[in-house]
């Protein structure tokens, strides 16, 4: 009987895994593990290092569990020493306060240095001039503004490879999180505020990006493709985008209305202050609604 249910459980587990692997189509990829940018690569290294470090705890624990439960089980034919009142050992307890403390000590150093090194607010530096991109999370799509190139796009982001990208991020919607896994970690997009993220693509290619923080009914549609191109292609692309229809505050208010449409758009940016205006919408000093105004000043 005992054996039978173990076999049964094994069959179920095996079947499940089999089905899963069978259905796992060719396209599945571990985006976090397939880093294509400097930041993502460093983050991946950290992940691998910390996982390795944790094996120092996991392996002894699992080994001890197996060893002790087999050795001291009641049914064991070879009877081992039974010490019902043995409940304290300074040496042993020092070891397991000390050893984890040591590991965590090492990890703490890593946490401290990596938090500074990989601070999303820290600009990336190389010999190229960074590209500024202003990101606005809308309901429910992404608006990317290139203030220097004077263009804007919706739901697609094109960047030159090997060039630092300085993202400034806000929202005209509930809070979202801006994430391009292959390039590096996420930062929240919040209205009335501007957060920063610095990323860089090490090679050309298409990378998935999305919102990872629940923002309402169209949340799962907030995806975009990041295309990293060569510098010349990028310039070409900018030129094309500039030929598109223009984007000013008027047009923006149309775009900002809630929609679940996902198609890509390109615009010529007419209003250089658009990003700031979007933030100021929520800023107190510019609040014009409310009948109290006439009392105030």
């Amino acid at each position: 009987m005992r054996r039978r249910y173990k076999i049964g459980a094994g069959i179920i587990a095996g079947l499940a895994i089999g089905v899963g692997i069978a259905m796992w189509s060719q396209t599945a990829e571990f985006q976090v593990l397939d880093a294509q940018g400097e930041v993502a690569k460093k983050q991946l290294d950290l992940l691998i290092f910390a996982s390795t470090l944790s094996l120092f705890v996991m392996i002894p624990v699992f080994a001890l569990v197996a060893f002790i439960s087999l050795r001291y089980r009641e049914g064991n034919r070879k009877v081992h020493l039974y010490r019902p009142t043995w409940d304290h050992s300074n040496v042993a307890e020092t070891i397991w306060w000390g050893l984890p403390a040591l590991l965590i000590g090492v990890l703490s150093v890593i946490i401290w240095t990596s938090s500074h090194d990989l601070d999303p607010y820290k600009p990336l530096v190389n010999d190229k001039k960074p590209v500024n991109v202003q990101v606005v999370a809308l309901q429910w799509r992404w608006l990317f503004i290139y203030p220097d190139e004077k263009i804007a796009t919706i739901n697609h982001l094109t960047i030159p490879e090997k060039t630092p990208i300085n993202f400034t991020i806000t929202a005209d919607a509930p809070m979202n999180s801006f994430w391009i896994p292959k390039l590096g970690g996420q930062v929240y997009a919040m209205n009335g505020m501007s957060t920063k993220l610095h990323l860089m693509a090490d090679s050309t290619g298409d990378f998935n990006g999305s919102s990872v923080n629940l923002s309402g009914k169209g949340f799962s549609k907030m995806k975009f493709i990041t295309t990293a191109t060569s510098e010349t292609q990028y310039k070409e692309w900018v030129k094309q985008a500039r030929a598109a229809k223009s984007l000013d505050w008027e047009v923006y208010t149309q775009i900002a209305k809630p929609t679940e449409k996902t198609e890509k758009q390109s615009y010529k940016l007419e209003d250089a202050m658009l990003y700031d205006k979007i933030i100021e919408k929520y800023m107190p000093m510019h609040e014009t609604s409310g009948h109290m105004k006439e009392h105030g000043e």
């Binding site: 107190p284 409310g290 009948h291 109290m292 006439e294 009392h295 105030g296």
Partner: peptide
């Protein structure tokens, strides 16, 4: 009555 109720500001 001055118009500074709780709705006025954070």
């Amino acid at each position: 009555s001055e118009g500074y109720g709780w709705q006025r500001s954070g």
